[in-house]
Design a protein around this nucleic acid. Sequence first.
DNA 1: GATGAATGAGCGTTCATTCAT
DNA 2: CATGAATGAACGCTCATTCAT
Lengths: 204, 204, 204, 204
Amino acid sequence: MGKSAVHSLDEAPSRRKRPDSLLKLKAAARKLFVERGYHATRPQDIAREADVGHGTFYLHFPDKRACFLDFVDDARSELDAYIRARVSQEDTLEELIAHTLHAIFDYAESHPGVLNAAMTDEAVIDAEGAQAKPLLDRWGDDWAETVRNLARTGRISTQYDPAIVGQAILGAIHQVSAEGSRSRRNRAVVLDNLTKFLVRALKA
Amino acid sequence: MGKSAVHSLDEAPSRRKRPDSLLKLKAAARKLFVERGYHATRPQDIAREADVGHGTFYLHFPDKRACFLDFVDDARSELDAYIRARVSQEDTLEELIAHTLHAIFDYAESHPGVLNAAMTDEAVIDAEGAQAKPLLDRWGDDWAETVRNLARTGRISTQYDPAIVGQAILGAIHQVSAEGSRSRRNRAVVLDNLTKFLVRALKA
Amino acid sequence: MGKSAVHSLDEAPSRRKRPDSLLKLKAAARKLFVERGYHATRPQDIAREADVGHGTFYLHFPDKRACFLDFVDDARSELDAYIRARVSQEDTLEELIAHTLHAIFDYAESHPGVLNAAMTDEAVIDAEGAQAKPLLDRWGDDWAETVRNLARTGRISTQYDPAIVGQAILGAIHQVSAEGSRSRRNRAVVLDNLTKFLVRALKA
Amino acid sequence: MGKSAVHSLDEAPSRRKRPDSLLKLKAAARKLFVERGYHATRPQDIAREADVGHGTFYLHFPDKRACFLDFVDDARSELDAYIRARVSQEDTLEELIAHTLHAIFDYAESHPGVLNAAMTDEAVIDAEGAQAKPLLDRWGDDWAETVRNLARTGRISTQYDPAIVGQAILGAIHQVSAEGSRSRRNRAVVLDNLTKFLVRALKA
DNA sequence: GATGAATGAGCGTTCATTCAT
DNA sequence: CATGAATGAACGCTCATTCAT
């Protein structure tokens, strides 16, 4: 009815088919997880927001949990890209910290609420068989690796256990940016203080 | 310990009744919130664990949320007591950091999981009418106050915004201890690294 | 403590003991059944309103239903007394109708809400083993008896089945006064219309 | 009647599905509200009676109250249709009363208990946000309108306040038919008495 | 692939009633 | 007589998931 039988010249312009229902679902899921949180978002809500049938949700995700984890993974990848685009191997400690923080705050600014939503403790979304490591811990591990590299190249003190200070750095950044956005703090001031704090803590 | 054995021949030592159902419920609630988290713990589970009827739960708490908030408040008070017992006004920066961290780690050791459970984001337990500030932010504010005092007495650099580095300190401690307990790290090493990290970040 | 051991000169002036807890409970029950209705009134509420312990309620009533039925019986007795005080055997039809309606409206005015609350359909308060006749039907029976008397003494048409017009009269009175109080109608006008209506319907 | 039997070879005559769960629920709700009353009927009971899952109930009604109100509305519409089919504008007073009562008693006979169940005081089903007027009052208003018309066309005495005698008529009819069905009175006798009663009360 | 009506275990909570004191 | 802490069956309702179409 009114839907042309012609091979959809008008809507699927190029490649193969178009499973854009997945894209619509992912966008809707992100929107709702950010706005309402994991528990207050029902698969039905996501499907309606995406303007697809409720059943379609389960064509693309085995369950709600998987959908949330997928959202978290996307956020992580996007943030990684932001960071990789701004830091270079030759950065000094100050530069590396400053560039990374800039990347994180830029991401948070253009994707408001996403980082906070993505960091919902996984204990909260799955009492029992949770994944090995919460997202925050994995991000802490990334910082541990960075710390190891900085120590190896003599840019920071070698007296630290990288695994531990990696978590410390991540924790400081996370809490400062989370609270900063809740309290609507001035971004430049936050960045400046946090950069100074981390650089002094690490400098050789 | 400290509870006199005199007169307790049986179980109900002297006069009257003993409306200890509240105590049993609080203990049960703590146990289950720690073991399973807020969402996976039902009022009914708490009542059964406390060995009282379902309805008794609602004699003492208006709802599940209030029970959780009560648990959080208790944890906060207990931890405050631990900290106050170990730090003194005349502590140097190093001492203050070390003593506070000792207190936190002692508390975490003798009450495993409690701090993590208590820090469940309040957004998670009550979408709408949540309290103004999450517990973590309030603890960050406490650190901000400490930072202000240290700066005023010349023990740390005055170039920081206390509100921001307060949150940074709290974030570092929280993440290090949370991840540390998940990864079963050596306590002494964690303490040592974290103390050094914070002292260097703050020292004048 | 502070309660005189002297044989209560001050409080139980005359006869025996004083089981005034029953009186307090009955007053409280009436107040709450009128204000909130049967289902929204809990035995606990009645006990608290009466300022006695919850258990005391069950010392005087086997259950909530019995308490309500007791309230209904009281209302019926009181209204009967009002009516008996105003009508006499020698009243003409007009007088009898007018006096009875005056009695009912007087009672309703000095005990607002009581008649309405007392007429709550018993189906509503006890799904299964209800009493043989709802209160309204029993009041209708009373009117049937009155009609029989009026017919016997030639004051009204004899062509009616008293049982049926008894219910009709009661129904008209009940609905007019219930709706009249809900719509805050003028009492005199209501009385005048209703009297005329019933007299014309019955007059020989 | 009016539904063509053509094509209904089996049960699902032609196209698609048949979302008759609503119809089954409405029938089940009517049955149970009539048999047990509002408070003794649980949504779950209605669903089981309709042979659908509990949740299906909430697909069609926001809550139990809405389901009951829907039942009431249906009953009112059905009865209105019965009455409209039997009375005409040119009826004399006697005819109008007689035809209307016939319609009501016919409806009550072919839908036993429905009118009584539908007239459950709305105060009983919803303490707070109830509708402006109970169903009975609204039916009384309908009678008031009828009385106004009769008075305007000179068919009844003009000395009445239509609003009040409207309620009186409705009250008489309601109580007589409710008690009549409880006492299993002879329908013809009841009709005869009630018609005479009302006609005499109203006749000019 | 896509749909959305249907499901029912499970939720947080209430309240009429009991009974040890 | 009086108490009120305790009870637990029962309530109205939600929502992650399935499956016939």
